[in-house]
């Protein structure tokens, strides 16, 4: 095993240029794929906090007595996808309205009776906030006898979620393409290394070396290339991320836009994937080499 490692390292050092090209290619692929992933991780965070902000307002019929409120509240909260239902009395609603329009609030002084209905403000659970589910929930709410009308303004968010999903699919497809491209690039380097050493390999075979003995260093070489490529790619991404996030956070002093880097486990997964790329590349070129 140590011997195989030594031979792999020796090989990387003798084929420095070829190996450097491969490692750079892998790290570029990793950089591109993981920046996509990073974008999705953050966009997803963002969407979720946004979705949590989606509200449905259910207006009650005017003749509902205060005594029934507890009952209605528990009915609403029993519906699927509801995180929380908060009662807003018409007095409370009037107060909020006054605050909202401040300067023109004198307009409201002319009213001798509060025209606003009592209502429930309903927050949704994060997962259940795609547009069909919101629609569904609204229909269910409307069918409750105590409820007069239902309002949920942010329909466009639903549409945005759909666009985002499409975007995410494209991201997956692109990641897949880069993965395959990286595998073939590694396969190609290893093929070139094998080619440059075909005489040596032939001699090794003639003196009784097994295929396993001959192939092991190449696998180690591929995996080392993968690991180095992955680490370099992630490091580059982290540097870029660090640069961008500090400059963004200076400009936008808000918790609204809180972006984060990969958690450790995801970083390790990415490096492992990169090693898998190296291994697969080897596997492909060595399988061909075996057939010859």
């Amino acid at each position: 095993m140590i011997l195989f490692f030594k031979r792999a390292i020796y090989d990387i050092r003798t084929n420095r240029f070829l190996n450097a090209v491969t490692i750079i290619t892998i790290s570029l692929s990793i950089l591109i794929v993981s920046s996509l992933v990073l974008f999705f991780v953050n966009a997803n965070d963002y969407m979720n906090s946004w979705k949590k902000g989606i509200k449905i307002i259910a207006y009650l019929k005017p003749d509902i007595g205060k005594a029934n409120l507890v009952d209605i509240k528990s009915k609403i909260q029993g519906l699927y996808g509801v995180a929380e239902a908060e009662f807003i009395s018409k007095e409370e609603a009037m107060k909020r309205l006054r605050e909202q329009i401040k300067r023109q609030s004198s307009l409201l002084d002319g009213l001798n009776e509060n025209p606003l209905p009592d209502a429930f403000e309903i927050r949704l659970t994060g997962q259940s906030s795609n547009s069909e589910k919101i629609e569904n929930l609204a229909v269910q709410l409307e069918s409750l006898p105590e409820i007069d009308d239902v309002e949920y303004g942010q329909r466009w968010i639903g549409r945005f979620v759909k666009v985002f999903e499409l975007f995410r699919l494209t991201g997956y497809a692109m990641s897949g393409i880069f993965f395959i491209a990286a595998v073939f690039i590694v396969a190609n380097t290893i093929r070139l290394v094998i080619y440059s050493r075909r005489e040596e390999i032939e001699i090794m075979r003639l003196i009784g070396a097994s295929d396993r003995f001959i192939k092991a260093p190449f696998y180690i070489e591929g995996i080392i290339q993968g690991a180095l490529g992955g680490i370099i790619g992630l490091a580059a991404l982290f540097a870029a991320f660090f640069y961008i996030s500090t400059s963004v956070e200076h400009g936008l002093s808000s918790d609204l836009l809180h972006i984060r880097f990969f958690p450790l486990r995801l970083s390790i997964t990415i490096i492992l994937c990169s090693m898998l790329v190296g291994w697969l590349g080897c596997f492909i070129s060595l399988r061909q080499f075996l057939k010859e």
Binding site: T14, E199, E200, I203, M204, R205, L206, I207, G208, A209, S210, D211
Partner: peptide
């Protein structure tokens, strides 16, 4: 194919053109 190395280990081969590995 797998057992060819076992055969070759029973043999010591001296080639006309030596076949030494030049980088070793």
């Amino acid at each position: 194919r797998k057992r060819i190395p076992l055969l070759r280990r029973k043999l010591g081969i001296i080639f006309q053109d030596y076949k030494l590995i030049p980088t070793k």
